[in-house]
Design a protein around this nucleic acid. Structure first.
Length: 671
DNA sequence: GTTGTATTACTGTGA
DNA sequence: GTAATACAAC
């Protein structure tokens, strides 16, 4: 396929800073792929001097593969294609000496950070969960804004910010003691490093001579700063973004960075991609009209040359159970009529909890489905346990990991023992793990407790030695066997089947660990510490979902759908308080919710359905629901509202809903 | 002191 | 469906 004029210009403009405003479905990834190839093949750039940064591992992996395909594996070797976080991690790993970090640092995910904060704030916050969460987001925001604890303290005006700033400092100190980093550190630390160390900055600017950034509207302050520091005065870079698809301001993204870019780089070349190759004209028109309700810095007029397409349908259901039934009935009908595949359909929703009923309905109707996101693989208890073991082996100072697994499976090390150990470690200012081996610990603990701890400590040390001296794959295998985790699972799961499932998850994890230790044609072999940090970054998750491949209905949140496309899309819960979400209404951030709706609509290629409930149970109460204001903003002549006025009683709806599915099933069977 | 069992409330999006 | 909590039992 040839490039259109806009794409062509975007690919070939390499002499200075370049901003590509790429509307939904306008082929921005193609531009990036082609540009990388052009830089290497025509402009004399070496692959190892080009970096492309994305936000998700999935996007990075996809880009890697497409680049390899388009210019050949050999030429693609050495390209830096990764997420912001992985790039940051790479910089930290190579510069850890300058940074004063010990090798083998742990990466805390937000659950770990939250656990630590909870521990640190027991006196100040008195177990107030909301406060704890808001402390966590405040710290995260500070880090994203490049504010270090000392500055936070100075900036703090009211009492609460002062308290938070103080706790931020305490948190930072403890993270250092644990030899641990959180996700925000992966950007913050490299950025501060490059800002303050000229020599290091020069080195990295020489290393990365052309930088491409995907989904630029999702960058936060520190990420943009990192970009600026990496490109330096030469300003050889291309960023691709779309302000209408900015849906991550809640985690610190600053879509204003699109504007700042023009101010920071007056020579910035602006290129717009306005032809959409994905959606029918009708879907695109609806999306355009919806998003016109938002203010815009850069005007964009997306158009499509595809067919006008089918009307957009609005389905009504009496309650959330019937919403799920309704979606499935319509999908089966549509599939039967259009002879399509289950894999052509996506069901999108605002919040993860909405997947429950859909899943159940799909299951009872024996429809294959694939759920992305939600309670992810890495937040499953058994995986967290195993990761904690690996983390402790790699970094014995990681008290979080230690606490998670010292007594799992049961080793007779209870809360009393751990409290004594913790106090001792605190007093001596060492980690709990190293405290085990201190000679005078026996003054504080009973001999039985001492021997249990000592046994555990030796086990970890032995494993660590087996990993460094011998074959890490074997060492890891032996670890699972030695702790009898399988027995533990069978004793502690509700059913043998659940235990089996969990064991399968663990085998899956170890398959990945083994693969990563060995390396493959896309990735170099890694050491165990590298594997552990990468896994915490969820680097492997998407690789797994790639080989799913089957004919399955796709279920995911609107957020997770960004960047994807599906022939047929159902958006469920198109109601006030859900989309836009109540809290966004309260916060006065309906514009972002509108963009979220825009993202959902523009995922659809051929047909689109909205589904709304008349009432919904929330907090045990039944609440009446109103159609989303966004539905009202859409061009009504492109919509078909089902049963606009007379809604059948719940009983009737249920009857018709069920029998519809049954009938359709029968029709399919006889065919 | 440690382990087992029952009950409770919670779910806005995620690297 | 999970995790945190509370209480009883070993």
């Amino acid at each position: 396929m040839k490039l259109n004029p806009g794409q062509n210009e975007a690919v070939h403009y390499v002499s200075g800073p370049c901003l590509v405003l790429a509307g939904a479905g306008s082929g921005k990834t193609r531009v990036i792929i082609n540009k990388i190839a052009y830089l290497v093949q025509e402009c004399g750039y070496k692959a190892r001097h080009i970096a492309a940064v994305t936000f998700t591992n999935k996007a990075a992996r996809e880009m890697k593969e497409r680049v390899s395909k388009s210019m050949g594996r050999k030429e693609a070797r050495g390209l830096w294609i990764s997420t912001f976080h992985t790039l940051g991690l790479e910089i930290i790993k190579r510069e850890y000496k300058v940074l004063g970090l010990k090798p083998g640092f742990s990466l805390f995910d937000d659950q770990d950070s939250l656990a630590l904060l909870k521990e640190l704030t027991q006196n100040e916050l008195e177990e107030d969960k909301d406060l704890l969460k808001s402390l966590a987001t405040t710290i995260s925001n500070w880090k994203g804004d490049l504010v270090i604890p000392e500055q936070a303290k100075k900036l703090a005006k009211d009492e609460q910010s002062q308290l938070f700033a103080m706790l931020y400092q305490r948190y930072a100190q403890h993270m250092k003691a644990y030899n641990a980093l959180d996700f925000d550190d992966l950007i913050l630390i490299p950025t501060l490093l490059l800002r303050h160390h000229e020599e290091v900055r020069d080195r990295w600017q020489a290393k990365i001579r052309y930088l491409l950034v995907d989904e630029y509207q999702d960058t936060n302050t520190s990420q943009y700063e990192l970009v600026k520091l990496l490109v330096g005065q030469r300003a050889r870079f291309t960023v691709v973004g779309d302000d209408d698809q900015s849906i991550y301001s809640w985690r610190g993204a600053k879509p204003q960075n699109l504007v700042l870019l023009g101010e920071d780089f007056p020579k910035l070349k602006l290129i717009k991609l306005e032809q959409n190759y994905r959606s029918s004209q009708r879907i695109l028109r609806a999306a355009n009209i919806l998003i016109a309700n938002n203010p815009h810095v850069y005007d964009k007029a997306l158009f499509s040359e595809l067919a006008y397409g089918e009307p957009i349908r609005v389905l009504m259901a009496a309650n959330e159970e019937q919403e799920a039934e309704r979606v499935i009935a319509e999908m089966i009908r549509h599939k039967f009529v259009g002879r399509t595949q289950f894999g052509d359909y996506a069901i999108l929703y605002r919040g993860n909890h909405q997947s429950r009923l859909l899943e159940r309905a799909l299951m009872t109707n024996r429809i294959p489905y694939k759920l992305s996101g939600g309670t992810s693989f890495f937040s499953r208890a058994e995986i967290k346990d195993m990761m904690a073991y690996l983390r402790l082996v790699v970094n014995p100072d990681d008290d979080n990991a230690f606490l998670r697994i010292v007594n799992l499976p049961k080793r007779g090390i209870g809360p009393a023992t751990l409290e004594a150990l913790g106090n001792y470690a605190n007093k001596r200012n060492i980690s709990m793990f190293s405290a085990i081996f201190e000679a005078d610990l026996n003054h504080y603990l009973s001999p039985t407790a001492m021997s249990s701890l000592y046994k555990f400590g030796c086990f970890i040390v032995d494993t660590e030695e087996a990993v460094t001296r011998g074959d890490p794959v074997d060492a890891v295998k032996n670890l699972v066997r030695k702790i009898n985790y399988e027995d533990y699972l069978y004793e502690n799961s509700t059913s043998a089947k659940a235990a089996e499932m969990r064991m399968k998850n663990i085998s899956e994890l170890y398959r990945w660990v083994t693969e990563m230790l060995a390396g493959d044609d896309l990735d170099e072999p890694m050491t165990l510490p590298e594997v552990v940090t990468r896994l915490t970054l969820r680097d492997m998750m998407e690789r797994n979902s790639e080989d799913e491949g089957g004919d399955q209905v796709q279920l995911m949140t609107l957020h997770a759908s960004k960047g994807l496309e599906f022939p047929y899309v159902f958006m469920v819960g198109a109601e006030e308080r859900i989309l836009p979400h109540q809290s966004s209404i309260d916060e006065g951030n309906v514009e972002e919710e509108r963009r979220l709706a825009y993202v959902g609509i523009t995922r659809a290629q051929k047909e689109l359905w909205f589904v709304i409930c008349r009432e919904r149970r929330q907090f045990g109460e039944t609440m009446r629901c109103e159609p989303s204001r966004f539905l009202m903003e859409l061009p009504q002549d492109d919509l078909i509202w089902e049963n606009r006025k007379p809604l059948a009683s719940p009983e009737q709806q249920q009857a018709t809903g069920k029998s519809n599915i049954a009938n359709l099933r029968n029709m399919l069977k006889t065919k």
